[in-house]
Every structure is written in C-alpha cells, then in structure tokens.
Design a protein around this nucleic acid. Sequence first.
DNA 1: CGATTCTTTGAAAACAGTCAATCTGTGTGG
DNA 2: CCACACAGATTGACTGTTTTCAAAGAATCG
Lengths: 190, 190
Amino acid sequence: MHQAFIDYLKKTGLNDLELQRIEKVIIPRKLRRRQYLLQEGEIARYNCFVVSGCLRMFHLSKSGTEHILRFAIENYWLSDYESYHAGKPSKCFIEALEDCELILITKEDLDLLCNDIPNLRMLKDNWEVQCSDASQNRILSIISETPEERYARFLQTNPHVFNRVPLHMVASYLGMSRKTISRIRQSYGR
Amino acid sequence: MHQAFIDYLKKTGLNDLELQRIEKVIIPRKLRRRQYLLQEGEIARYNCFVVSGCLRMFHLSKSGTEHILRFAIENYWLSDYESYHAGKPSKCFIEALEDCELILITKEDLDLLCNDIPNLRMLKDNWEVQCSDASQNRILSIISETPEERYARFLQTNPHVFNRVPLHMVASYLGMSRKTISRIRQSYGR
DNA sequence: CGATTCTTTGAAAACAGTCAATCTGTGTGG
DNA sequence: CCACACAGATTGACTGTTTTCAAAGAATCG
C-alpha cells in the first residue's frame, strides 16, 4: 500500500539503496474515520506521511471548544511538531476525518536517515520551510484581515481541503464562529 | 563589537578554526532607530543576528495599517524567512526600534557553513524549531483566546520585549486595536 | 426510513473598532 | 531653563460586527 510513498520519494531523486534503507524503518498504518493518531498528553514519537485520507490536529480548551491547528491530506506530513521535537507531552489531538493510510517514522529513524541521505534531508527541510511560510501567512491573515478575507483566502489557498471538511471545522481553523462563516457565505457566494 | 556574537557561538561548542571561518563571512552592521533593515519588495538576502537593540518586522496593508509579525531583541535571529528561503521579494519591512548592532550573514554563506559545521547546523535547526513552536502557539492563542488572555500570555512569555516597545505595537502584534488593549489594562491591572 | 451529522437562522447581548480629543512624559532647541 | 513639539497612552461616544444559545432545516449514511 505504501507504493504512493515510494513514488513520492523517488521524485526527489533517491536511489534504490536509499529507498531500501527507508523501507526498513517505516511503519504503515491505517486509521478509520474518527480514530485518533495522537491524543493530548501523549508524546508525538512519529512524523506521519499521509498516503490517503484527511486528518486534523486540534486543541481542546478547558471550556470544551476545539480549535484546529492544521489539516493534512495526501502528500502532507503531519505531527505535533512541538511535542515531536522536544519529546514533551502533546497539548493536541490528531484525528482522522476520513479513513486514512499513513506512513509513520520515528524521529530517531528520520534523523538518522536524514544525516545519511542528503536528498531526504532536503525534502524534510523543504517541508519545514513550507510549514513556516504557511504559519507566517496564517498569522498575518488572522491579525490583519476581516473574516470575509480570511474565508476567501482559505478557499483560494486550500480548495482541496475546503471541499473535504465540514464547514464548522473551517470556521474553527479560521478562528471564527460557524454563525459568522454562514453569514459570510450568504453574502459572498455559495 | 561582535564579541557578543562570538561568545554566543562559543557556547555551542564551536572550535577556533570553525569560528575563524565564520568570522570571515559575517557582516557587522549598525542601524539607528527608525532605520530599515529590509523594505517591502527587496529580497531578504541576510539572516540577521541581533547583538544589541530591538527590531520589528511588519506588514503594511493597502489601507495603511501596520501589522507586526515579529519582534527581535538580543540573541534573536531575524529575517523575512519567506523571502530569505525562496529568494522572492519580501512583503514586509524590518525596522529598528532602537539603535542596533547586528551581524548579517548571507543565506549562501550560512548554508555552506552549516554543511561543514555540525554544531552550527544544530544551532540553526534549534532556532527554526523554536520559531515554529512559537508560531504554532501564537496561532493557537489568536484563534482560541480572548484578547485579555492573549495580552496576559504575551506579558508572561515576552516580558523583555513588552517593556521595550510601545503599547500600540504590542496591540498590533496581538491583532487588536490600541483601544482594546487600553481597555484591558484598565480592568486587568497597570 | 431513521439517525446522525451538518448547515443555516433568529434574537439578544457582548464586544471590539473607529474617530477624535485629551493627557502624559520626554526630549530638543532657543 | 523654559517652551514647544512629539510620541505614546488613555478616554468617551458611537457604530458595527461577532458571539452565544437554541432551534429548525437540509443532507448524508447505513
């Protein structure tokens, strides 16, 4: 099942020997809708590549409200990197929104592999750069734009996510109530 | 003047040879209050280490409002990493809020050095992890907390920044108006 | 078809933003 | 040393928007 993962790696120019080393340590995992990959308090030991499916990472406040920090779909990497990097208990949950096929790698294995395989390291560095750019843009969006603008930006930037997740989760991701997102759609279209 | 920078590097266990290599390529730079290190449209060619002083990076919206993306004080690294990594024109400004002493390194030089000096690479990786953790927490804070809570969190997490920058910039960083931040202080103390 | 999940909607209340004026403290130059 | 300018902080009245809560309407799935 993890052929998609291999293909993804091959695009980056890894040779067969390197591929074999990677295949030795990866852990394929299936998740059904509503299953959790990570729960609050656990340590995120794995970085997770999404072969198929869709997940969300969210935080649960004391008052019981969920706040979505990220979505992940095919070809995304996902983990609670704060927990992953520091080895501390996570403050978040990661939940499958659809049935998922995932590839897990422990931080130890991935770090070792990255030391020996420059192309893999590049891949990882690129992903991290992408993430940090996305974070910065998201921060700017939240502090500077109106709800309308944020909605429009999300729709434009993440159409593939938008079409797969319930609207109230988009609202949660954008930091607005579902009432507000409904109102926007009314005037803004769709 | 860049002795502080050398000391900072030494703490990470670099040897003298490595230090010499680094010293060859760094560019000391002084900025006076209100001077810009980077302006919108320019490419962020440098990563910048703050020896002394305080800076802000902000975005200027079409309507003329400034939105602060980050502050930097002593021992922080700073750049518009979106521009820095991709070599694209920046959407932001970086401005000195006080007279500053900085150490600049071009991306090319830093990348080369990091390839040869594992300790330096670790240093850089650590900084990036810190940044991404901070971003994630900031996002969570904005989408899940009330202005009061965000204010309190900033006060607690960044007291050294808080005491050095004008209040309306804290407001801008937190994504609220100065009216709101004033109101909070009235009830919340100070 | 029944049950669950998702989306919209209404009315009331809470809240934050705008604008403009005032107040404060700092520092500069005459 | 004083006067003035300047940047920063607070305040008030008003406006507009968002949240809350709850309930009803759609849509989807087994």
